[in-house]
């Protein structure tokens, strides 16, 4: 029988505040809008979407002009993945008719927060019609017995 180390109430409170802070950061990030591009890193933030199904989480990312062989999906935390992809051609502000900014972009980059526990190591990735589909099986942490 394994002996579980009891955490102090202070640890529990600290963990709680940490999780609230993380949650606030995410809310803040979604409320404060920045540009969808970054000239320094020459990256564009692609559109992404997430669907939480009963058995899996499906993340999609819109990657037009992406070179399929360069697409990378990396878990950067237990609840966060990062998608990067090189473009087949560089895009510049001139292409959009914009003259008050200068810069060109050759890479897509975005981070997607996964709101429920998943097996990140079991993710399946597909790419079709410029849409990246990432499927992550959901973790079942516990089961409630039916009496």
């Amino acid at each position: 029988m394994s002996i579980r180390k009891r955490r102090s109430i202070f640890d529990v409170i600290e963990e709680y505040f940490e999780s609230v802070e993380q949650w606030m950061d995410r809310i803040r990030e979604s409320l404060i809008e920045g540009p969808s591009w970054d000239c320094k890193s020459c990256t564009i933030k692609p559109l992404s979407d997430i669907t939480v199904a009963s058995d899996k989480v499906i993340v999609t990312v819109d990657l037009p002009y992406a070179e399929e062989s360069t697409i990378k999906v990396l878990p950067i935390d237990k609840d966060m993945i990062e998608v990067t992809a090189k473009m087949r051609r560089k895009i510049s502000f001139d292409d959009f008719g914009i003259t008050h900014h200068k810069g060109e972009f050759h890479t897509f980059k975005c981070q997607v927060y996964i709101p429920v526990p998943v097996y990140i190591d079991k993710m399946e990735v597909k790419f079709k019609k410029g849409i990246l589909v990432i499927e992550l099986p959901r973790k079942r942490e516990y089961e409630i017995p039916i009496k």
Binding site: P46, L47, D95
Partner: peptide, 14 residues
Amino acid sequence: KGEEIRIKARDIMR
């Protein structure tokens, strides 16, 4: 021009 439109339309889509 589908792919080009998809890039240009990201912000209005958002």
